[in-house]
Design a protein around this nucleic acid. Sequence first.
DNA 1: AAAAAGAGAATGAACATTCATTTTTATGAG
DNA 2: CTCATAAAAATGAATGTTCATTCTCTTTTT
Lengths: 208, 208
Amino acid sequence: MPRIDSAQRIDRKAAILDAAERCFVRSGFHGASMSDICGEAGMSPGNLYRYFPSKEAMIEGLCERDFAELGAGFSALARAPDIWEAFEALARFHMIEEPRESCQLWVEIMSEVARNPQIGALRKKIDQFIETKIRFALEMARDRGQTAPDADLDPAVQFLITYADGLMLRRARDVNFDPKPHVALMFSILRSMLLPPATPASARLTTP
Amino acid sequence: MPRIDSAQRIDRKAAILDAAERCFVRSGFHGASMSDICGEAGMSPGNLYRYFPSKEAMIEGLCERDFAELGAGFSALARAPDIWEAFEALARFHMIEEPRESCQLWVEIMSEVARNPQIGALRKKIDQFIETKIRFALEMARDRGQTAPDADLDPAVQFLITYADGLMLRRARDVNFDPKPHVALMFSILRSMLLPPATPASARLTTP
DNA sequence: AAAAAGAGAATGAACATTCATTTTTATGAG
DNA sequence: CTCATAAAAATGAATGTTCATTCTCTTTTT
């Protein structure tokens, strides 16, 4: 087992995760066999095990990578000149441009989250990170006068997270689901929550 | 193999599905073994196989039962005197009163839907059924003057379905997620879509 | 006493992982 | 440049386990 991860080794690991991802989408984390993954990666089991010590480690590596990519997208929000535009671009990317397979993997990961404490911990971190970033972006938008000055941001943040999850789930389960108009609807609702008249008090979340 | 399903036999099958459900929530459809299920059901494998011919058949049976229960709830909507109230009661039931385990099973089922054509077909049927029932209920509400007369129902229907899925996913993945305020937010948004002023044209779904 | 319900050991396939071995790559002395 | 050699990369058959399913036998019910 090599001490350091050379660039080549990192590439190889990424390629293995790509292959594993295809298998997992096809058959699920527990339905896909190591033999399937070896076949998809064009690699013998003996060799594959030099890169990942177990199937568990591969699942964890895949979740880590997925979460990291998601986090990077949200990190970039704060740096965007136009926040609304950046938000819409990010949503378009995750819900429309990314293939449906990403949504299937997302649902698979979510159903693993409750079972596997290791992955559950990763999920918690990324969830909190994303929530913070969305909140921060909306605050920036408000400071720049791009929302109503007294807009209540909490319900908007919660709405976005929940609705995005719903879109992922619907896209994953229905081949014919076209996310485009649904993303448009999401932003239309978000605007109606943040632009003039403020959300009525009855709709505020007390303990979100 | 008995020709007919006596009442006793149906009860027994239901009890087996209950046990299987607990195992599936704990370990997933493919992580739970028949031996686990036999243990949970207090039954030998030889006997269990008299009720379900295979594990596959048990998973299918469980999905069928879950979908049927869901459908029954939505069927009842049309018969309710106050549709808003009935709607809120149904949402409260599925999102709040039902234990978190139901949401975990829902996510598990959804990730199976894409892989297993048998279950995929069941999903399609129930999805269309629910959409029809929600639409019908909203139409009734509009006819009774409980919404704006020119309210655009399509976006509202799609919003409800997507948001409910999002809530299920969030509750499944986060033990600390409290659905109560989120269901309130859902209805607050729904009301703002259906009560005066009508949803702006830009938010309409063209091909939902 | 026949039929239904149930038990639990047996079976064979599939699986994750390991191991003995071979092939490739990189290195440096002649 | 070239060849010897050691490290790294890769192979695929072997291993031991787990699992879904079956089979034979016993108990309970009618």
